[in-house]
């Protein structure tokens, strides 16, 4: 951990940035309790306000970006961060799809502001909540609400070692079956987004008997229409008997704006 300009190789500079979000994803880095000392040994924490007020100016080797873009000011800040970052990794559903706040993209933003704030005239916001990749090039995306810290460590390790990170883009079902988790859809009739949701969480919900709510967003090549049709079918047809609004709510949560989930939700009630 030499910082005295000796022969030790320079540690990569890591920065963690926040946009519209709850901070849960960046806290996943602090949650890496067993590995935290190794992480600090491997990288220089240059900008991470949840951890320390001390900051180091850019450029940065790796930037972790949390949150979605909801204001014009944030967009300018993001563009500056991109210019200062060698590798930009978006972390979490907000940064990768716009987050739950992207529901406003499908509603009247003025209505929301009037409903929430005592002085709506103080609020200056865009009508949309958009993912980081809509505005600047993104090198790696980490899904989840929140992200999986194992995946975060995997990505940091790969970047430090100069390897390509390996992140699954297949369905949650693959993880469930590997783990031996009994399918909650087939054995209980639970509505589950697992078949159309990207793996990576470690099948958190199905393994405790509840359906996946899609916080990792759409897997590649998903067939949301077939799944929604099945969920809406009655139990006699093998479905879960969901009505339109329930089906829309299932798709329109943390990844409401993700391609596939957005359109599927809009088709129902």
């Amino acid at each position: 951990m030499s910082t005295d300009g000796s022969d030790a190789p320079r540690r990569p500079k890591l920065a963690v940035w926040k946009f519209a979000s709850c901070d849960g994803c960046q806290l996943s880095l602090l949650d890496c309790e067993d590995e935290l000392l190794d992480v600090v040994g491997a990288v220089e924490i240059a900008y991470f306000l949840e951890a320390t007020r001390a900051t180091v100016p850019g450029p940065y080797d790796v930037s972790l970006v949390e949150g979605s873009i909801t204001t014009a000011h944030d967009l300018k800040r993001l563009q500056k961060i991109r210019r200062q970052s060698k590798v930009l990794v978006t972390i979490g559903a907000c940064a990768t799809s716009g987050g739950i706040q992207a529901l406003k993209s499908m509603a009247d933003t003025e209505d929301y502001i009037r409903a929430v704030y005592a002085r709506p005239d103080f609020i200056k916001t865009l009508d949309t909540s958009t993912p980081i990749a809509h505005h600047v090039p993104v090198d790696v995306e980490l899904r989840g609400c929140p992200i999986d810290r194992g995946q975060l460590l995997h990505v940091l390790t790969a970047l430090i070692q100069g390897r390509q990170p390996r992140l699954p883009n297949y369905s949650q079902c693959v993880e469930c079956k590997r783990a031996g988790t009994v399918c909650v859809m087939v054995a209980k009739g639970e509505p589950c987004l697992g078949p159309v949701t990207q793996a990576g969480c470690g099948n958190l919900c199905p393994r405790v008997g509840r359906g996946c709510y899609g916080c990792f967003g759409p897997a590649e090549g998903v067939n949301t229409r077939a799944l929604a049709g099945h969920l809406r079918a009655g139990p006699a047809q093998g479905g879960s008997g969901l009505d339109g609004p329930a089906t829309r709510h299932l798709f329109h949560t943390f990844n409401a704006n993700a391609p596939g989930f957005r359109e599927e939700g809009q088709r129902h009630g």
Binding site: G41, I160, S171, C173, K177, V196, A219
Partner: peptide
């Protein structure tokens, strides 16, 4: 294709489907 979710449940439940992938990982310090 209109009905299939491509979720892989059939292959992973099948007692003879044996396909596997090989993945590498390293520790933080390499």
């Amino acid at each position: 294709a209109a009905r299939c979710l491509a979720c892989g449940s059939c292959t992973l439940s099948c007692p003879t489907c044996f396909c596997a992938t090989v993945e590498d990982s390293t520790s933080l310090d390499g």
